[in-house]
Design a protein around this nucleic acid. Structure first.
Lengths: 152, 152
DNA sequence: TTGTTAGTTCAGCAAATAGTGAACCAAATT
DNA sequence: AATTTGGTTCACTATTTGCTGAACTAACAA
């Protein structure tokens, strides 16, 4: 599979952004390839060749992308190859997982608040406010996502 | 400054969570220290000693925590030391920045959509839906944060 | 002017992470 | 039975990151 310069550029942009949030480069590129490719279904070797990756690199990237629900594969009768594709229905779930972060943080902040010295009253009050804010935001997001899912 | 076991534990928990999202360990611990400490204002050497960090490690962690608006310092007349403290007013901004991620992603996705082959109609439609969802969520969050700021 | 305090900067090391290539396995093909 | 296909696993290497210690600066003090 041959990519245009524009496609390559977009894969790299998508990659750099996701690397910033902890995804390994190869994984970013594989994911990006699914987004820009002219075909929806890609085979192992197409991915490997197009991105100049090693077999193991390709295998591992595909594996973790499946674990994180970003891609899946289908098979075809009488064909031993796997046809990988991007799971586009997964973005609301992805977004929600991103918020889980705030929730986890909030659990720890509440725990910290409980054990803090009562001497630092102003600080404690601020920290309390933060936990309330995080509670608030979490609820708002949850409601927003529900709203979206209903209006579809 | 001597920390209780509970305080140490909370710093580590806070650290592990934030490391998961890309903060370096030392930086996490410094930030965590501000959250659990019995005092609000901490000096360079207090931080260094309490966390067993090197001078440079302490200096760099404090620097980046300032760059990311998590902490600030004040000075006192006739005293050359800096008194560092956590910026508690910063959490709404922090939250908003976290969403900037989605917005950046959305910019790239829209760009990808523009350049995609018209042959993959179903995929393109799904991708369009994703960008609409991200637009929607971004707006909802912005409104929610405004709502919070008004009701304070 | 020499020393001390409060921090910064930078070279280099140690640990962690990402990716390669070779060996391997399981299913299908000759 | 031997070979090919489609992929996985694992030992090692290369790169990146995080941190240290030593040298340095800037301000003030003796």
């Amino acid at each position: 599979m041959v990519l245009t310069e524009k496609q390559k550029e977009l894969i790299e942009q998508f990659g750099v952004l996701n690397e910033k949030y902890g995804l390994p480069p190869a994984e970013c590129r594989v994911w990006g390839l699914f987004l820009v490719a002219d075909k929806v279904e890609l085979t192992f070797d197409e991915i490997r060749e197009t991105l100049n990756l090693s077999k193991s690199g390709t295998s591992n990237a595909l594996h973790t992308l499946q674990m994180t629900n970003h891609i899946e594969y289908i098979t075809k009768l009488g064909d031993r190859k796997r046809y990988f594709r991007c799971r586009m229905s997964n973005w609301t779930q992805m977004t929600q997982e991103n918020f889980a972060k705030f929730d986890d943080l909030n659990v720890i902040l509440k725990e910290i608040l409980k054990t803090r010295s009562p001497k630092t009253e102003a600080f404690n009050k601020d920290l309390k406010k933060v936990t309330e804010f995080l509670d608030f935001i979490y609820k708002e997001i949850t409601v927003a996502i529900q709203k979206w899912e209903k209006r579809k």
